[in-house]
Computed example of a mutant assay.
Amino acid sequence: MGVAIRTAGVADRELIVRLLDEAFQDDPVSGWVFPGTAERRAKHPGLMAAFTDIVLASGRVDVTEDGSACALWLSMPAEDGRGGDGAADAGEDEGPAQVRQAVDPDNARIEQIGRLTAAIHPSGRAHEYLWMIGVAPGRQGEGLGTALIGSVLDRCDREGLPAYLEASNARSCKLYERLGFEQAGPVLELPDGPVMWPMWREPRTTRTA
């Protein structure tokens, strides 16, 4: 039986925030942004809400029909028109600072993680960017994440679009490799923290009968 997937709307905001918060509470990167357990429990939902609002406004959120998993996607253009490199553009982008201000102005790592990931983001080719994917803890291992990602990758293959993501743990890297992603350049080493794996997937040629 297939997994029923739909596009989320503003009415699904609280569901998406809750899913992401539960899925990433124990993630290494979330633990780096919010090192203290009590602080993470209190402030992590706000960060997930900020991410959700950005993607609901500018991208696409897919959610399983039963509300157990979601994926946040942004369609990235080929060029931004400024001709700069990723690091320069990241330095000019006020988005990370705005997220920090909205969530926790005293936590520099909220802004830092946004700038560091922006600096390594590939430019030059249009692609689909998987920002985050969250599966309810009790439903992990059922193939929900694979179904969510696969629905977009099928479209990427039809349209000849690459896809990109940053994996936040080694276990998820294995899943993405099975879906055709490969490591794209050096890992991102967070200061005094874990690493993230930038991963890129070239579109697969659609076979015809």
Rank of each mutant, 00 (worst) to 15 (best):
G81M: 05
D104G: 04
A136C: 09
L116W: 01
D154T: 15
L116V: 09
E128H: 09
E79K: 12
G160P: 00
Q98R: 14
G67W: 09
G138R: 14
G150H: 03
A87H: 14
M76Y: 03
E142D: 09
A147D: 10
G138S: 15
T37M: 15
K43A: 04
A126Q: 14
L148P: 03
R158F: 00
A50M: 08
T64C: 09
I113P: 00
H44D: 02
A102F: 01
P105D: 13
A90K: 11
A57G: 05
L161E: 11
P77Y: 06
E65V: 11
E142G: 05
T64G: 10
L148Q: 08
S68R: 15
A71G: 06
M48A: 02
L116I: 12
R100M: 01
L148V: 05
G160F: 00
L116P: 05
D106P: 01
V61A: 13
T117V: 11
V61T: 15
L72W: 02
G46Y: 07
Q112M: 13
L116M: 08
Q101C: 02
S75T: 10
N107L: 05
D106M: 07
D157S: 15
L161C: 03
P137D: 12
A38W: 04
T117N: 08
S151H: 08
H121A: 04
R115F: 00
P137E: 11
T52N: 05
A97Y: 08
A90N: 12
D93M: 15
T146V: 13
E39N: 08
R41V: 05
G59N: 14
V152C: 13
D66H: 07
A108Q: 15
G83S: 10
E79V: 08
C70E: 13
I113K: 00
G150C: 03
V99E: 12
L161A: 07
G141V: 09
F51E: 06
D106F: 00
G91A: 14
A42S: 09
Q101E: 13
I113F: 03
L56R: 13
A97D: 15
C156S: 00
A49M: 10
T37E: 15
Y129H: 12
G86D: 12
H44W: 02
